[in-house]
């Protein structure tokens, strides 16, 4: 609806402009346009207002008057679009706030602080490319100096990834103090994912438990890119062993358990493909290039290594993060 007084004001504006054709009047007109948009005045109402205003300025030729019918008819379509945008805007706002809730809920699934143990440092960097992350990680302390860690990448982004993540978290949590071995844990999670998500969804994961008495990490892999082990004795990085089908692909997959022992100065790095699949200029980062960057971080604390590598890779890809990035570093001291 047209607010009162607007017609008079518009006529005055037209009249002023017609006498001097000053740019200042056009500036006023622009400001008026902003105000009218705020008042939610549609394009066709504006056309109608203009037509009525003309009648106050002098004799309007019949063809001009009649032409307004055509203009009005055309502008109704613009008006429909204008009204649609208003609706979409409020819908968008609602989606944004739902997204914020999902994002906050997702964060609550991640550990708030990392456990601390003598003899081994834990470093972590996890950054979501968008509001909702498809990466999942968890580090849980158990008795007898053990902690178990999970690093996973969920296919698909957004809400579906967040929902799958909460399912994984609760599937693990529901086992309570019953602590299955890594192979058995992946079997269990595979069944959960397979039965409860749509067939196109799957999860890659490394799950393992670190025994701080023996400094051994026993783990199993489900379709996840293996990480790296740094051997201080050799002064070089090795690929971690292990493969296995991603969770959610077959209904009765089994997963081989492996063990890696860390000597003083050795480092274990687990990561998601956001770390490795990274375009630098036009080419993808090669694994040996990544190793070279890793080598430059050797000697620092676990957290400093993780931070250092992240900032280096981020700078290399011009501060753009196209995929979720998660890296966990374990360093025996």
């Amino acid at each position: 609806m047209m607010p009162r007084g607007i017609e008079e004001e518009y006529i005055r504006l037209l009249r002023d402009y017609l006498t001097g054709q000053g740019e200042d009047k056009l500036y006023d007109a622009q400001q008026l346009g902003k105000w009218m948009l705020q008042q939610d005045i549609s394009p066709e109402e504006m056309i109608d207002l203009h037509g009525r205003a003309l009648e106050h300025l002098g004799d309007v030729p019949e063809f001009v008057r009649a032409s307004f019918s055509v203009l009005t008819e055309v502008m109704i379509e613009y008006g429909n679009e204008h009204r649609a945008v208003t609706t979409l805007r409020s819908k968008h706002k609602q989606l944004q706030s739902e997204m914020a809730v999902a994002s906050a809920m997702q964060k609550s699934l991640l550990p708030r602080e990392l456990p601390v143990f003598p003899g081994v440092e834990i470093g972590l960097v996890s950054v979501a490319a968008k509001q909702i992350s498809g990466d999942f990680y968890d580090i849980v302390a158990h008795d007898n100096g053990r902690f178990c860690l999970t690093i996973a990448d969920i296919t698909g982004k957004g809400i579906s990834a967040a929902m799958c993540m909460s399912m994984l978290k609760y599937a693990m949590e529901s086992l309570g103090e019953m602590l299955p071995g890594p192979g058995e844990m992946l079997r269990h999670l595979n069944r959960v994912v397979e039965r409860n998500t749509d067939p196109s969804m799957f999860v890659t994961m490394v799950y393992g438990c670190y025994d701080t008495n023996r400094h051994s990490f026993r783990y199993a892999v489900a379709g996840h890119e293996p990480g790296f082990v740094y051997r201080a004795r050799d002064g070089r990085f090795y690929d971690m062993e292990g493969q296995g089908r991603a969770l959610g692909i077959c209904n009765d997959c089994s997963y081989v358990e492996r063990e890696v022992r860390l000597e003083v100065g050795d480092v274990l790095m687990l990561l998601t493909d956001g770390v490795t699949e990274r375009k630098i200029d036009r080419d993808y980062l090669q694994r040996d290039e990544l190793v070279a960057y890793l080598e430059a971080e050797v000697g620092a604390s676990a957290q400093a290594m993780a931070d250092g590598l992240y900032s280096k890779l981020l700078a290399l890809s011009r501060f753009e993060l196209s995929d979720d990035y998660t890296m966990i570093v374990l360093r025996r001291t």
Binding site: E44, D48, T72, E73, I76
Partner: peptide
């Protein structure tokens, strides 16, 4: 109905 309403009705 005013002219706009006429046009909206027709549309």
């Amino acid at each position: 109905f005013d002219t706009i309403m006429q046009s909206r009705m027709a549309t």
